[in-house]
């Protein structure tokens, strides 16, 4: 069996599978790409042939328009391509997010993409896949990051809404994934009021709804009267919550939903009044648990704080390597 790094390795154009002649989440357009999920730092426009889950392809079409050749793959459906078999399994990060499983001459590599293990009503849950090489993200790979249960954070938000009935709560959330998860979590917690959205968040919500995810009564915040938004919950992209856009809100309580909110300096820097520690990435314990679940003896880290994770797994006899792939973690760093 050929060692994995003879047929799968990082190049300046991205992670490359030589026998299949394709790239995974390439930062620049390539002839053949396999995409883990539709966040813009992983799914760039302009690739010629794209294999991905059908939900990821739908989200990519909405963002960049159609690509010339799309290969939708169902969970677990093998795609035999030259001497490589490609299979997708859910990653639990956002709608359609996948782990990419590559089998070549009896060895198996799994590329996690971004993932989490915590339950999420808006996407299929992560399933650990046994493999020889596991290529993982490491956004929150420090032992200070242990995400609390999301329901508890939503409870803090709703307590604040009750405490400040004369103000508008505006939550900074990324347009793809975080927004829909927050809405679904709010609905699970019994918040059945209309939720008001910044215009940039509406298209992605529509695709989620087309995929059968219930989000309830959503309304554009842009057309609402300032007065009508008092006591309401408004979602907007992080760049808008403390900026000109938020001036349409009455004495807003600026909230931000992100794993980074765990660290006070990060939250204070953004002018956040109510930080909500809700993340779509694996925390420290989930990263370590997942690595053990895969049984991999070798782990590559694509992006994040890799030093701590490589140090920790080395104590368990697992070989770690930092790929330092450039460009990831830019669209949604949370």
């Amino acid at each position: 069996m050929p060692p994995v790094d003879t047929w799968l390795y990082p190049t300046p154009q991205g992670l490359y599978c030589a026998p299949g002649d394709f790239f995974i989440d390439p930062p620049r357009p390539v002839p053949r790409a396999v995409i883990t999920h539709a966040h813009s730092d992983h799914a760039r426009p302009g690739n010629h042939t794209v294999a991905a889950s059908s939900a990821t392809l739908a989200l990519m079409r909405a963002r960049h328009g159609p690509c010339p050749a799309e290969t939708p793959l169902a969970w677990g459906e093998p795609l035999h391509h030259r001497d490589v078999t490609i299979t997708l399994h859910p990653a639990g990060h956002v709608l359609g997010s996948a782990q990419i499983v590559l089998d070549h001459q009896g060895t198996r590599a799994v590329i996690s993409g971004d993932y989490k293990r915590a339950p999420d009503p808006t996407c299929d849950p992560f399933t650990p896949i046994q493999c020889d090489l596991f290529i993982t993200e490491a956004t929150f790979a420090l032992p200070i990051f242990r995400h609390p249960p999301a329901a508890a954070e939503i409870a803090r938000l709703l307590a604040s809404v009750a405490l400040f009935p004369g103000r508008t709560h505006v939550i900074g959330a990324y347009s793809l994934g975080k927004t829909q998860r927050l809405i679904a979590l709010l609905r699970q917690s019994g918040w059945n009021e209309p939720i008001y959205l910044h215009g940039a968040l509406l298209p992605m919500c529509a695709i989620y709804q087309q995929h059968g995810i219930e989000l309830g009564d959503l309304r554009p915040a842009t057309v609402a009267e300032k007065r009508d938004l008092i006591g309401r919950i408004v979602l907007a992209p992080p760049s808008a919550i403390a900026d000109r856009w938020a001036r349409r809100l009455e004495d807003p309580v600026v909230c931000m939903a992100s794993g980074w909110m765990r660290v006070r300096q990060r939250a204070k820097q953004g002018g956040v009044e109510l930080p909500l520690v809700i993340s779509d990435h694996a925390d420290w314990d989930e990263l370590n648990q997942t690595i053990d679940d895969t049984g991999a003896r070798e782990v590559w880290v694509t992006h994040g704080t890799e030093d701590a994770l490589i140090h920790e797994i080395s104590k368990r006899g697992i070989k770690g390597r930092a790929l330092r792939l450039i460009g990831y973690g830019e669209e949604e760093a949370a």
């Binding site: 660290v263 701590a308 140090h311």
Partner: peptide
């Protein structure tokens, strides 16, 4: 673990907060 503590303290910048989180 001292290595993990040092990396974490570096990231957080506040001793009490680092300990609270780690």
């Amino acid at each position: 673990d001292p290595t993990l503590f040092a990396l974490s303290y570096d990231f957080v910048g506040d001793l009490a907060e680092t300990i609270a989180l780690i």
